[in-house]
């Protein structure tokens, strides 16, 4: 154990340095203002950093396997959520259908027939 612990301690500093370098890259990369580079350097590197922290600082790979599976499952369910919801929230048209809020919001209101009804009844009707 003691040898392993020593190795850890040795690694922590190195991991920290790598994280700082990655941070620098993730700031400098997007400055080129090329979309692909931005995506890779900003989000790809965020993933790498997160994985490094999880493995080297949180020791997820030393915990029993089901911990990694659990974390992965949570992430997969979130992707599933994104996949299931994004067609509604992000898309506004498709085959023969359209989601046009303006059409609903700014159409003139239907004429009121109910105002004659003394009881206030009978407007809903058929």
């Amino acid at each position: 154990m003691s040898e392993q612990e020593h190795e850890h301690e040795h690694n922590y500093g190195k991991v920290y340095l790598i994280l700082l370098v990655l941070l620098a890259v993730s700031i400098l990369g997007p400055m080129l203002e090329i979309q692909v580079v931005t995506l890779i350097t900003a989000f790809g590197i965020a993933g790498v950093k997160a994985l490094l922290v999880a493995r080297k600082f949180m020791h997820i790979n030393e915990a029993p396997k089901f911990i990694s599976y659990l974390m992965t499952t949570c992430l997969v369910f979130m992707m599933l959520f994104f996949a299931g919801v994004s067609p509604d929230v992000m898309e506004s048209s498709g085959d023969n259908w359209k989601k046009n809020l303006k059409m609903w919001l700014y159409s003139p209101p239907p004429a009121h027939h109910a105002s004659h009804d003394p009881e206030g009844h009978g407007s809903g009707g058929h």
Binding site: I67, C74, F77, F81, S92
Partner: peptide, 28 residues
């Protein structure tokens, strides 16, 4: 240790739901 990992799991979905919502809005 086990309990802390379960806390982390429950937090992943809280932030996951929020950031997924943000991403959908941001992209559209």
């Amino acid at each position: 240790l086990l309990a802390v990992w379960w806390v982390v799991a429950s937090e992943i979905v809280i932030f996951g739901g929020l950031l997924a919502s943000y991403l959908m809005y941001r992209l559209s």
